[in-house]
Write a protein that binds this DNA or RNA. Structure first.
Lengths: 355, 355
DNA sequence: TCGCGTACGTAGACCGGTCTATGCAAGATA
DNA sequence: TATCTTGCATAGACCGGTCTACGTACGCGA
């Protein structure tokens, strides 16, 4: 019982022999290096094509580049991340670089392990999407490898960053709701304990919410549920907001995930959307678009972000050392989850569903 | 303007020097190889810890293993894939292997490129999730690298495969609908032109549907819309089925994606679910669980599948050469999208919404 | 013809690990 | 005592690329 002979892979030497030239010459052709005659190029290229040779990334990595971009994300099941990847892959398609992804999970330890794994695999550039790891550590990574951080407002001169302009996005939502006639608008935010590693994003959305409320003279109506951006957080937050009297006529959830939780809570409470309450989210996930959900939300152009990430990484690999911070302007997507509040003769005294 | 000195990475030689031993000794300790005294192990381990050394995967790959498992998937935004990854990562957590993912996209060419990229990066094992590439090519890959194919019924002695038992899953749905009292049940299937690379999965689901219908004496009620498993396919398929008179009282969509399209079409047609029509899907995606959708569907345990994939790959890497084909028994998740058909005095003559 | 610069091609070191072959010492066996 | 085994440590080849340093041929001006 012998293991089947695992066919040896073609090497650059095979190509060199087949073309009757040196390894170095083949290498030069592959890398489009200077000092190759037209005849040599043709000859080697023909040999490569005939044999179907592809260089081995590991060997290249050992000496120079691995032609690999590593992307670190918490989980893969997130449609927005998929969009980012689409943009990134598109951008890299014309280069020789390939994007690989790795899951960091939601624990510091697993994320660290994943990040190390990318570094150990000699990737030429790293894109981290909404990482949990602290700035200091990111800077350390960035010193070794070109790095782009997406979705964290935590700037650093050591790495490039790409963020959505959350201030503008939140204003879009609030202006929309207020234009519809709402004034008792609740907000669900993400409460982070650790100020150290916390990102400013939820804070920006919450602050903008409060500012706009105040600007319109609705300071007394400000109602924030500080739970989390998860579906569960949205559910809990919604129940908290609903327990107020009078209850809000609209809820601006800090994320679509949370908005889904809000919808679930409203559904459970027997309240209709947007009849009884309008709901808006943030992120324009794919679920938000489904007719049964039809959530008004803020669209961050993940495709553009991913594309930009690819460009910044390639630039860094080419040698740029100054940091670039890119801000993407989001847009509002109005769907059926928001409408004018139900006209009410008396503005107070709406009945609550009994607990 | 000089680029900042990029700090040289620690190598095995640094560790050896620091511990006052040979490179080979350090290598042995790292790999838990035979022929290392207790004293040596301690000494080297201490040096590794003190310096914070981590071996470089590229260098290891060149000689032996890269300790990397490559996962090829079409897109990352699919919750079911996320579950698979969770299982896989869990399974690999105790080993020294790391899973990386790569997007193959939906075109043959891009998928091929992604697959090559994994091979060029010397991964020790490959998991392909519902690949488009033909069996012959998969077999060729499998000859070079341990391979597990998930989600294709296309078996081969060259690689392991993991599939959901679609026959059982489809029976679960059909039995459920029939037990509720339905007999005019429509089905939406995925029509594939290219028999060559086509997978049998949609065929199995469709055939099981027809068989169960016949077994219950409902052969005359068989109604299949051959579109696709996408949301759009579901939408088109539903409209096709609705145009029949009498229209079905239940629709079994071959996938949740398609089921979502069905819901959208029904919503548009002003039909209520499950009041007018029951809808069932297949896959138990995350959307299916949301209260606003609450889709009855078939759950494939992605976690178990991913875990199994990891185990099979590790076994193959350890030297197993015989093929294993693993079938996961799915389960039915009953939600609010299915109910008994509306009692009707006359079974025919239900009015259609005008087109 | 000589000297020199330029263009092109190659030999061989090198990257950081693994792995084989070998050395060496201590204990077992003849 | 001589030989053999066993356990442990090491030197150095090796993986498949890249890259430096050098050799060679050719063109051109003096």
């Amino acid at each position: 019982m012998v293991a089947p002979e695992r066919r040896r892979r073609l090497t650059i030497s095979d190509v060199a022999k087949h073309a009757g030239v040196s390894k170095a010459a083949v290498s030069k052709v592959i890398r489009n290096d200077y000092g190759v005659s037209e005849a040599m190029r043709d000859r080697v290229q023909r040999a490569i094509d005939e044999l179907g040779y592809r260089p081995q990334a590991a060997a290249r990595a050992l000496r120079g580049r691995s032609f690999t971009i590593g992307v670190l994300m918490r989980h893969i099941g997130i449609p927005f991340y998929a969009e980012i990847m689409t943009g990134l892959v598109d951008q890299l398609a014309e280069s020789d670089y390939q994007a690989i992804m790795i899951q960091g999970g939601t624990r510091d330890k697993t994320e660290k392990r994943a990040l190390d794994a990318l570094i150990d695999r000699q990737v030429d550039g790293i894109l981290t999407i909404a990482p949990m790891v602290g700035r200091t550590q990111l800077e350390q990574v960035a010193r070794e490898i070109p790095t782009v951080v997406l979705g964290r407002h935590n700037r650093s001169p050591a790495y490039d960053s790409i963020v959505d302009d959350d201030r503008i996005g939140s204003e879009l939502v609030m202006d929309h709701l207020i234009a519809l006639g709402h004034r008792r608008i609740g907000h669900i935010t993400f409460h982070q304990e650790h100020g150290r590693t916390a990102d400013q994003m939820p804070r920006i959305r919450a602050e903008t919410y409060e500012r706009v409320m105040r600007d319109h003279g609705f300071a007394d109506e400000i109602a924030v549920a500080a739970t989390s951006y998860s579906e569960e957080g949205g559910y809990d937050g919604a129940r908290e907001l609903l327990s107020r009297a009078p209850r809000p006529t609209a809820i601006f959830a800090g994320s679509d995930e949370a908005a889904l939780g809000v919808l679930a809570a409203l559904h459970e409470a027997g309240l209709s959307v947007p009849g009884d309450i309008s709901v808006a989210g943030y992120d324009n996930t794919r679920l938000a678009a489904h007719p049964n959900i039809a959530l008004t939300t803020v669209n961050q152009d993940g495709d553009v972000m991913g594309r930009m990430a690819g460009r910044l990484l390639l630039e860094r690999i080419e040698g740029r050392t100054s940091a670039v911070h890119f801000s993407v302007i989001p847009s509002l997507v109005v769907r059926r989850s928001t409408a004018a509040p139900r006209p009410c003769p008396a503005d107070t005294g709406t009945q609550m569903p009994s607990e």
